[in-house]
């Protein structure tokens, strides 16, 4: 462990703002890259399900 105390860890010498903003932005960008496709998956599946349902209904309508 490099730092003596948790306060020293948070303070990062005099560079708290720089270090923490860089790490925060890094984590933000990485996690956005992971989360957005996961959210998008739901949209994709819903879209395709709606399409299937439409096709299904159309088939039923024409067969009647």
């Amino acid at each position: 462990m490099y730092f003596d105390s948790f306060e020293a860890f948070l303070a990062m010498g005099k560079h708290a703002a720089y270090v923490w903003s860089a790490y925060g932005l890094g984590l933000l960008i990485l996690s956005l890259n992971v989360i957005l496709p996961m959210l998008n998956k739901r949209k994709v599946v819903a879209k395709q399900q709606a399409r299937l349902r439409r096709e299904h209904n159309k088939k039923r309508a024409t067969s009647q």
Binding site: M1, Y2, M12, G13, V19, A22, Y23
Partner: peptide, 18 residues
């Protein structure tokens, strides 16, 4: 937490790891 700070740049050196 574990990497030592740079002797000139201090802790801002840790930004390198991102």
């Amino acid at each position: 937490a574990y990497a030592p700070a740079d002797y000139q740049q201090g802790n801002s050196f840790r930004i390198m790891y991102i």
